[in-house]
Nucleic acid binder design. Sequence first.
DNA 1: TTTTGAGTTGTTCGA
DNA 2: GTCGAACAACTCAAA
Length: 486
Amino acid sequence: MERTTTSDGDTAIVWFRNDLRVSDNAALMAASRHGAVLPVFIRETNSPARPLGAARTWWLHHSLERLAEKLESLGAPLLLLSGDPARIIPDLVQATGAAAVYWNRRYDPRHQAADAALKAQLQADGLSAESFAGQLLHEPMRLKTGGGTYYKVYSPFWRAMEPDIEKRPPLPAPDALPPLPAKLDIASEALAGWGLLPVAPDWSGGMNEAWTPGEDGARARLVDFLENRMQGYAERRDIPGVDATSGLSPHLASGEITPAQIIEAMRVADTDASSSDLSKFRKEVGWREFSWHLLANDPGLPDRNHNSRFDAFPWIRNETALQAWQKGLTGYPIVDAGMRELWRTGWMHNRVRMVVASFLTKHLMIDWREGEAWFWDTLVDADPASNAASWQWVAGSGADAAPYFRIFNPVLQGEKFDPDGAYVRANLPELGKMPSRFIHRPWEAPDSVLLAAGVRLGKNYPEPIIDHQAARQRALAAYQQIKDAA
DNA sequence: TTTTGAGTTGTTCGA
DNA sequence: GTCGAACAACTCAAA
C-alpha cells in the first residue's frame, strides 16, 4: 500500500470524494510524496449512486469551502469540476502528465464497480492508480464468521472486530503539498455556481446555528465531546433533552473525521469517563462499521427487505399520514418534536429516531422505505449504510432486527426519556407552556390546563392522528399475517 | 453435523 | 406502585 519511490517532478492527482479532510488521509499523504499534487473534487453528474439529499448537499458546500482553504494553505489549491470522473480523471492525467492517481475507497456498492473500472483503466494506461482505506476501521468485506459467511448479528461482529480497532493509527496531515509547476489549462469551476445552497426558501438557518461543517469543526466537536460529554455518556446518551451525544455523525458521513481518529483520541484522552462510558461510545462507532458490513454484503439494503418475508408485509399507502409525520403533526409530542428537530437542524437524537421510525412503520404501517427516503433527504448525517440498516432494523425486516412485538409507545417513551419535557418544549413551541404531567399526552389534559398553556387541540396542535392501542393491535395482526404466510 | 447459548435500545397484563 | 412473565419462535455463530 505504501509507495516507495517518487521520481523528481512527477505529479499525483488526488480525487476527493467522501473524505473532505487533509489529516488521516492516506491518498493525500501518498500524493504529498510526489513532486506536485493536484487535488480535485468532481460533482458527479451521472453517478451510479443515489444523489445526496438536500441537507447533505448544504453540508457539502460548506465542507468543500473549508477543504479548499486547507489545501490552499498547504500549497495545492482544490480543483472543482463537474461531469463523469471516468472522463475527467483521464483528461487531467493528460493535461498534467501525472504519474499517479490516488483516492480513498468508498464502500457504497453502487460506487465500487465504477471506481474499480476507472482504477483498472488507469493502471492499464501505465499509471500508478491506488485506493486507500480510512473511511472505516475495517474493510467491510473482510470479516467472516467461522462458517465463512458475513455477520448478521451485531454482538459477534463486534467481538470479532473490536480487538483490531486500534491497529491502524491515524495519519497526520501532510506538512506541505507541492503545487503544479505550470498553470493548468483546465479552470476550476466556482463553488457558488454549483447551487448547493438552498434558495427560495432558504431553510438552512437552523443548520447554520447547529453545525460547523469542515475538518476543524469536526475536530473541535470531538475534543469538546471528550472533555465535556464522554463522562456519563452511557447514562445520558438516551436523554434527548440534554446535549449528551457526540454529534460527530455528519462529520463522519462527509469524511471530515475518521473513526480511527476518534478511537485514537479516546485512547489518549485524559478523562474521568468510566470504562462503560468509553465502551458504549466505541460500540456506537462499531454500529457504523456493522452497517457498512451489511451493505457491502447485501447491496440491496437501501431498497429491498433484508428479510424477504417482509415482501408480503401489508404496508399502507397514506399520503396524508406520511405528511403529518414528515411535518411533525402527528399529535404525539415526542414524535413531532423529533421530526421538527430534524427539519430545523438536519439531525435527530438517536433515541427519538427509533421512536419516530417505529411510529411510521408500526403505528402508521407505512413502508420503511418512505422513512428512509425522508431521512436521506433531511439528515446532514445521511449515510447509505447506517440509514438503510437502521430503518430495516426498526421495521423488523433487517439483520438482527427488533422483534415485531416491540412497538414503542410514544407516550411512555416520552415520559421515560424526556420526563421534564425539555426536548418537546425545545422543539414544539406550541407546547412550551404545557405542564410536564401532560406534555406527552396533551389530549388528556383538562380544559383548564390546556387553556392556561395556550394549547387548542386541533387548532394549534393536532389531536393524535391515530389511537395507540388500536394501531398497536393492527400492527401485531399484520406481523402475524406474514409470519403465518411464511 | 449437531448442539447450545444468545440476541442494542419494549410494552402490557395480571398478580 | 411493583414485578415477572408473556409476547414467537427463529436464526445466528461458535463449540
